[in-house]
């Protein structure tokens, strides 16, 4: 599903070259859950952005189903993202001017799904996340946990092959975080979606199939 090969990224800060990661290798199979852990500032989010095509590597390849993501132009990368990937952010990042139902329907709208399919999917996902009663509410009227549930539903609405989650429980209390994590894993498995979670929470990482630590620019396997 996802294969990062020989991936390098560095920044130049005040004339000094700062390596974020170098000659990085990563594979993620369909339906697999991978947790990426590391200290703050270790480059986890940068790696996630490079893997999703939001950021570009200095060298190396990111193959999505055998296709080099960074060999494509920006519009094509965006198209791959909108069709094959889903995102869950730490700060939920819902669209404040759209209702809960509209937020969930947005990825379907972007890929041009018919209105009826949008409606059915939204209803199914709202039931799945237990927020059927909030369809017409705006995000700012929901709690943090509820907003993150809506974000997960939005990320899965168009049935992506790859789900990228950046600290999905980082802004939630332990109990809610645990509940959200359970839901994320359940829904990803139900859809056979490969899931890459960036986190610095050990309990969250422990629920993944595999755990990798980003340390000094290299990935090191950890026991799950």
């Amino acid at each position: 599903m996802l294969h990062a090969h020989n991936l390098c990224k560095h920044y130049v800060d005040a004339g000094h070259r700062q390596v974020v990661f170098e000659d990085l290798e990563l594979r993620l199979h369909p339906g697999e859950t991978l947790a990426l852990i590391g200290a703050s500032g270790s480059g986890k989010t940068t790696l996630l952005n490079v893997l999703s095509g939001i950021d570009t590597p200095d060298r190396g390849e990111v193959l999505i189903n055998g296709r080099d993501l960074h060999a494509q132009g920006e519009p094509e990368r965006t198209r791959i993202r909108r069709e094959q990937m889903g995102f869950v952010f730490q700060f939920f990042n819902l669209i404040p001017t759209l209702t809960v139902a509209e937020n969930i329907a947005l990825p379907l709208e972007l890929i041009g799904a018919p209105r009826r399919r949008q409606q059915t999917t939204v209803e199914e996902l709202l039931q799945a996340i237990g927020l059927g009663h909030t369809a017409e509410r705006y995000p700012d009227t929901l709690s943090g946990g509820e907003q993150q549930r809506v974000a997960i539903a939005r990320a899965l609405a168009h049935r992506p092959r790859l789900l990228l989650a950046d600290e999905p429980t980082g802004n939630l209390d332990e109990e809610t975080g645990d509940e959200i994590m359970g839901m994320l894993l359940r829904l990803a498995r139900e859809q056979s979606t490969a899931l890459l979670i960036v986190t610095h929470s050990q309990p969250v990482a422990a629920r993944a199939d595999r755990v990798l630590r980003l340390h000094r620019g290299s990935l090191v396997a950890e026991s799950a």
Binding site: I54, R81, F87, F89, N93, I95
Partner: peptide, 12 residues
């Protein structure tokens, strides 16, 4: 918001 939209696949 535009950043989020771009992340989930909205074209410029």
């Amino acid at each position: 918001l535009f950043g989020r939209l771009r992340a989930i696949g909205t074209q410029p």
